[in-house]
Amino acid sequence: MQRSSTPSERPELPAHHQVGERMLLSFEGVTKFYGPVIGVNNISCRIGPGITGLLGANGAGKSTIIKLASGQLRPTQGKVRIGGRNAWSTSAKSHLGYSPDVSSFYEEMTGYEFVYAMARLNGFSRAEARQRTDYVLEEVGMADRRGRRLAGCSHGMRQRIKLAQALVHDPWLLLLDEPMSGIDPGGRREINELLFRLADQGKTILVSSHILVEIEQLARSILMIARGRIIASGTLAEVRGLMKYRPLVVEIVADPVRKLAALVAEYPDVQGVEVRESSLIVRTRNPAEFFAYVGQLVCSRGIDVQRMQTLDSGADAVFDYLQQGRP
């Protein structure tokens, strides 16, 4: 007996959509000039399955990288490949889902009509396109608002529709430019969960965002861009580890706080100590050894450390620091 498919079930896709080869987005010595202005400068990286965050200030080259990867731009030098195919080529686009940062649509259409049209443009038959559209609209949480005209949709709804059109052909590579912009916290959680599910399915997801905390929560690894170059890549912890000689600011809530202040001030790698009401703010240039030292103090001097946390190891601090170090 043939099983009927409901919108909540993931529709089967034609064989050509099942990609067995390397699911890699790769940049090989990519440089892009806009006339005399350089957009990205000799970038090389390989982005594999999972969620990768793309961080960078305005004008750093983030958009150029996304546009090169989505085949809207061609590199002046080097190669951009999607699963081994030239990103500019038509064949590469079968494997690509792209959600642009601009919120422009065919405004006269409903969300359903738009996503359905995009499914048809991917070559699906009417029945397949309907099935895929139903499925992705439910995935992005727009199933109940599918009949609303795009012109009357809120920014958050439009973001979800953009995400739906990027997912409708079930690509293994997703390029999402500021996908959380305008989405409320509850919606962000839903979208995050969706992206985690997609990553678990083995999809390669590149997310660009200026809200660094979002990337921190979402991305398995990070690419930091400044002035057209990759200044750091890896997990946030790995990137943080690159900054061995940068002082780390640590807050310690302890009792007695003044005794602890006196002890840590003697430690050679501590650059400064600030005593507050019940806590210390310590700047250390060797965090790993400093944490071990505090541990020893707890045991040997009977100091009650209630809480110890780093204040600047987030993505913002890492990014600011790495940018400062660039010429």
Binding site: S70, G71, Q72, T90, S91, K93, S94, L96, Y98, P100, V102, S104, F105, Y106, M118, L121, N122, G123, Q165
Partner: peptide
């Protein structure tokens, strides 16, 4: 002008 051309250019249709 509407900035919707991008939705066509990223589809697997030759330009």
């Amino acid at each position: 002008e509407d900035r919707t051309l991008v939705f066509l250019l990223v589809r697997p249709i030759p330009r």
